[in-house]
């Protein structure tokens, strides 16, 4: 039974809303964007855990919180049994080697003025590796991501590489410190469709080879279904449903999950089309709806309880969680 490598408890991140000078003088209240508003989940060692949702759901913020690129407003992050939430930057340094992140935009995440060698070697430099060790590790990382022969790539600049190659460099950079946990934030969404599978298959192979765990952030449910083991569906900073990817996608419980799945187009012109599409748009995260955040658009709205009381994320069967009054036992 695989143990939990990451446990998040009631994680929150509120961003203060910047207002103009006059408003800050006149207004007494401070407004916040409730990007992540109290979420709890466990990720097992070795699995690929999908964090799925639309824009404004808080998934990217959550990914960055876990590697402490940004600091949580509240809540606890436990890594491999140790509470890493409040460690000082110095105490946290050794953990930075274990927790890495791959960003979405291969055109923005690599410093355009650095050689590929330096980009991949940078984390090693920061952590005090010798020149010889750096060279070995950079070459190995390039081989792992199949940018071979390494000599052909180390003296190039990012602009000389294609999007797919750049993303491989980003992966190499994330691998070079032998991490245990990688946050992959929509790593293929900006790549051409025909090469996405290549990058994903590569990530999967490397995960298996090095025994890593991956948090895969995505808005693409179809993709998540094919490569991930577990999934958590986020909406406006909260988790609506969570469980194994097969259960959640094949038998969704939360009305939002159902709506999301129905909205995903299917590459089959003969597939039967569901005619109902969820109405409306995602409300503002500055002033999220009361009670259940989804109640303003929910096709299965029960009544006042949905508006008044926020449903707790409850485990209704082993490993299967849902936050919805439809399922709360009375």
């Amino acid at each position: 039974m695989a143990k939990d490598i990451i446990i998040a408890k009631n994680l929150k991140k509120w961003f203060p809303l910047r207002t103009g000078l006059l408003s800050s003088i006149l207004k007494k209240e401070q407004f916040f964007v409730h990007a992540v508003d109290g979420i709890s989940f466990n990720i097992k060692k070795g699995e690929i855990f999908a964090l799925a949702g639309e824009s404004g759901s808080g998934k990217t913020t959550t990914g960055r919180l876990l590697v402490r690129l940004i600091e949580p407003t509240d809540g606890v992050i436990i890594y491999d049994g140790k509470d890493i939430t409040k460690l000082s930057q110095k105490e946290f340094m050794p953990y930075r080697k274990k927790l890495q992140i791959i960003f979405q935009d291969p055109y923005e995440s690599l410093n355009p003025r650095m050689l590929i060698y330096d980009i991949i070697a940078e984390p090693l430099t920061i952590h005090g590796f010798s020149e010889k060790e750096k060279e070995e590790r950079v070459f190995k990382a390039l081989e792992d991501v199949r940018l071979v022969p390494p000599q052909e790539f180390i003296f190039r600049f990012p602009h000389e590489l294609s999007g797919g190659q750049r993303q491989r460099v980003a992966i190499a950079r994330a691998l070079v410190l032998n991490p245990e946990f990688i946050v992959a934030d929509e790593p293929v969404s900006m790549l051409d469709v025909s090469i996405r599978a290549e990058i994903l298959n590569l990530m999967f192979e490397l995960k298996e080879k090095y025994g890593m765990t991956i948090l895969y952030i995505t808005h693409d449910l179809a993709l998540a279904r094919h490569i991930c083991d577990s999934i958590a569906i986020m909406y406006l900073g909260k988790i609506m449903e969570m469980g194994s990817v097969d259960e959640v996608i094949n038998e969704p419980l939360h009305p939002y999950t159902e709506a999301l799945i129905e909205a995903v187009p299917v590459p089959d012109p003969e597939a039967s089309r569901i005619e109902t599409v969820l109405k409306g748009e995602i409300p503002s995260p500055v002033n999220p709806p009361s009670g259940c955040r989804f109640h303003t658009r929910c096709p299965k709205y029960i009544g006042d309880i949905c508006k008044a009381k926020e449903p707790k994320l409850t485990e209704i069967s082993k490993g299967r969680y849902v936050a919805c009054h439809l399922y709360s036992s009375k």
């Binding site: 797919g164 090469i195 996405r196 599978a197 298959n201 490569i227 299917v266 590459p267």
Partner: peptide, 24 residues
């Protein structure tokens, strides 16, 4: 065929995704 294979469907059984090596 390659392009269709690169679009996983949310319905149906889990499949290994196909990619087309190289670039345009």
């Amino acid at each position: 065929q390659g392009l269709i294979g690169a679009f996983p469907s949310i319905k149906g059984p889990r499949m290994r995704m196909i990619s087309i090596p190289g670039s345009p």
